[in-house]
């Protein structure tokens, strides 16, 4: 089945490149280890055979579209259900033009957790990623073409036959500093403000300020990031608690209401900081304060924090009453 699907993917890529509809196809290729399927950029029809797909095609490729926003080049990108939401986000933000991209939807039955690998040589069973266990959009919400049995579907649906796994965000809050993001928000709820501060302080004290989380994020699309500002008074380059916290809060706030919960930031963080917990928290608050909203589903809808205007303002006051009290 997977073989057929891959053949189909390669076929589409070859056709798109041969006909000149696109100049680049972004997909996954077979990695150097059995559990790795990293991104690949195919520019020649004869290289289409490099394309690959399996349960390790975790990377969300839509963020790469940002690299093409100033180029006069058409790009095709393979998207799983969750990845397609990021494409919608980019279209909503006018970061990519619909006519410059070809999104190709692939079916997804959940991706496997590479952090649970304990034999580098022999393939073995791996649990599903926790984000996949919670996935509500296994089908692409946006795609120009589809392969396999993938269908474009914006309605919520929860995949059923998923076995339990510990997930990418691996382990509970343990001594070695690995966290599981899911559940953190709920657990913090019962704590005092100071204790919550201590929790975050501890978590972010490990931050290296490598900005991998920012660079991978399809919602982080500013041309110039405040974190790179030449103004040393804004945010220092060093890794100190103040600067780390500032970075953490601003990153999370800037994607609030636009984060599609693709989980890439947390996956790429080299020190395992539970970034998704903060994203989740802000996402929930946006829903509570403004309106129920899933980012990146409908490109005609504006995200709640970006809508202003008279009719909207009445609503704002209505929902704000409880806040002011």
């Amino acid at each position: 089945m997977m073989k057929q699907l891959i053949a189909q993917m390669q076929e589409i890529a070859r056709e798109l490149l041969e006909t000149g509809i696109v100049q680049t196809v972004i997909g996954w290729e077979k990695g150097s280890r059995w559990y790795l399927s990293p991104p690949v950029f195919v520019r020649k029809p004869e290289d289409a055979g490099r394309l690959w797909y399996d349960q390790f095609a975790v990377p969300n490729l839509s963020g790469y579209l940002l690299d093409y926003r100033n180029k006069n080049e058409k790009v095709a990108v393979f998207v799983k259900g969750c990845d397609s939401r990021s494409v919608v986000r980019l279209i909503q933000d006018n970061q990519v033009r619909k006519e410059n991209i070809v999104a190709i939807g692939v079916p997804c039955a959940g991706m496997r957790d590479q952090s649970a690998v304990n034999d580098e040589k022999e393939p073995h069973e791996l649990p599903l990623l926790s984000k996949c266990l919670q996935c509500r959009y296994p089908n692409p919400v946006y795609a120009d073409r589809t392969v396999g049995e993938a269908v474009v579907d914006k309605s919520l649906n929860v995949p059923d036959d998923l076995d339990a796994g510990t997930g990418l965000m691996g382990g509970d809050l343990t001594g070695d500093g690995s966290y599981v993001s899911s559940g953190i928000v709920e657990r913090l709820e019962g704590l005092s403000s100071d204790d919550r501060y201590d929790f975050w302080q501890k978590a972010f004290s490990k931050c290296l300020r490598c900005y991998a989380c920012r660079n991978v994020c399809p919602a982080c699309s500013c041309r110039e990031c405040i974190m790179d500002s030449e103004h040393s008074l804004w945010v220092g380059k060093g890794s100190s608690p103040t600067e780390n916290m500032f970075n953490a809060l601003i990153r999370a706030y800037h994607v609030a209401g636009r984060c599609t919960t693709c989980g890439e930031c947390e996956r790429v963080c080299p020190v395992g900081i539970p970034l998704m917990a903060l994203n989740q928290f802000l996402g929930q608050e946006v829903n509570k304060l403004l309106e129920a909203y899933d980012a990146g589903i409908d490109e005609t809808l504006k995200p709640p924090l970006e809508m202003y205007g008279w009719p909207d303002f009445d609503g704002l006051f209505r929902c704000a009453k409880g806040v002011r009290a």
Binding site: R196, M245, L282
Partner: peptide, 8 residues
């Protein structure tokens, strides 16, 4: 206003 209390 919702975020600040998370951080003391």
């Amino acid at each position: 206003k919702k975020l600040l209390p998370q951080f003391g």
